[in-house]
Nucleic acid binder design. Structure first.
Length: 363
DNA sequence: TATTTATTTCCTGCTT
DNA sequence: GAAGCAGGAAATAAAT
């Protein structure tokens, strides 16, 4: 497991990967020079060749200066005629920017509006995904500490300390939110919930956080049922109805939806979920590994654990590898995955998948 | 509101 | 015998 510092850099690295400003590219200082001293301060970093200030933060938390910096970066990148921009409308912080519709951005920025809208929402969706994975792995890690308190945690491969996680949360406002103690037994591929501690901060992201934001009723649901139980549970105690499980009752759903982010990304597809785990080996706790990185061949190391993570993401505690693998097999037809004959737990990304190649990530 | 998409669930049969 | 794979069939939620 990666140390907290490494993890805290993942967001900025990921965003860096998406937004690689050409080294040779000049900082577009002159574009914003009329906007006042305060605004220019934040640009000095870029002018000196460092990463701009907005690189390491979520758009929601950008200051006005960071917003302007980000806009100017795209103006420069797209060789856009800045005279067409209504700068009087650019005086907004990240939160406001994130709530602009595509049409609004189009009105302010003209043809560049669509590009800005798309880029902004790429960052938002990527960071939400990473937040989800990090949240989940934090929970696993913390539960291991709790579960094995008194034993030597390092034997279990834990490199986090509670303090480091707390530090990470305070460093990264988007990492704030609920802690729920989920344990992943070291010798099996099972994950089970062992307890829950909830911490809220006034600015916590649980009003706008990841898919894992569980409300108390849901946490209790997991608590009561337990992941370990599902295997022997509903399926064998009378047959479950076919098809996707019914949604929660309206009350529960309303409760969840009020907690759900206004900006939560559209549900990630299974193959994207798998891809994202593979792209962050430092986070995936040995769940999966690349067999052939160039060819996109990968292997499930802990198939049931991955299935349960997927189940957690989809709020479906009865997910199993068997079901997950059925969904994976449907991807063969769509050429999102290719068959790897004769090898168990091994799959390969197909031509209709994207975002997993090293060059894709760098570009 | 109807249709489509993307799963989810269950199942049988086969392979490792 | 257990685990995994293959794929049909049906059901469902969410998106279009």
């Amino acid at each position: 497991m990666a140390g907290s510092c490494e993890i805290s850099n993942i967001f900025s690295n990921y965003i860096s990967a998406m937004y690689q400003p050409e080294e040779a590219q000049e900082a577009p200082l002159e574009l914003l020079s009329h906007l006042g001293k305060e605004d220019n301060v934040a640009l000095t970093a870029e002018a000196t060749g460092e990463k701009p200030a907005w690189f390491s933060e979520l758009p929601y938390f950008w200051s006005k200066a960071q917003v302007l910096e980000w806009i100017s970066y795209h103006v420069e990148k797209n060789k856009y005629d800045a005279s067409a921009i209504n700068f009087s409308c650019c005086n907004m912080d990240g939160y406001t920017l994130c709530h602009c519709t595509q049409e609004q951005l189009g009105l302010i920025f003209g043809p560049l509006g669509d590009e800005l809208y798309n880029r902004l929402h790429e960052i938002i969706s990527v960071s939400d995904e990473l937040t989800w994975i990090i949240d989940l792995l934090e929970k696993q890690d913390m539960s291991s500490q709790e579960l094995f308190a008194g034993s030597n945690a390092t034997e279990l491969g834990n490199m986090y300390t509670k303090e480091s996680l707390e530090e990470m949360k305070s460093t990264h406002p988007f990492c704030q939110g609920e802690f729920s103690y989920v344990s992943m037994s070291p010798d099996s591929s099972d994950i089970s919930v062992s307890g829950t501690v909830t911490s809220h901060s006034p600015n916590s992201q649980d009003s706008g956080g990841s898919d894992l934001d569980l409300d108390p009723t849901e946490v209790k649901l997991i608590f009561d049922d337990g992941f370990a139980d599902y295997k022997k549970g509903d399926v064998k105690h009378g047959k479950r109805k076919r098809g996707r499980p019914r949604k929660l009752t309206k009350d529960n759903r309303d409760c969840l939806e009020t907690k759900k982010s206004k900006h939560s990304p559209r549900g990630t597809h299974l193959w994207e979920f798998i891809r994202d785990i593979l792209l962050h080996p430092e986070l995936n706790e040995g769940l999966m590994k690349w067999e052939d990185r160039r060819e996109g061949v990968f292997k499930f190391l802990r198939s049931e654990a991955v299935a349960q993570l997927w189940g957690q993401k989809k709020k479906n505690s009865s997910m199993t590898y068997e079901k997950l693998s059925r969904a994976m097999r449907y991807y063969y037809k769509r050429e999102i995955l290719e068959r790897v004959d004769g090898r168990r737990l091994v799959y390969k990304f197909g031509k209709n998948s994207s975002g997993w190649k090293e060059e894709d990530i760098l570009n």
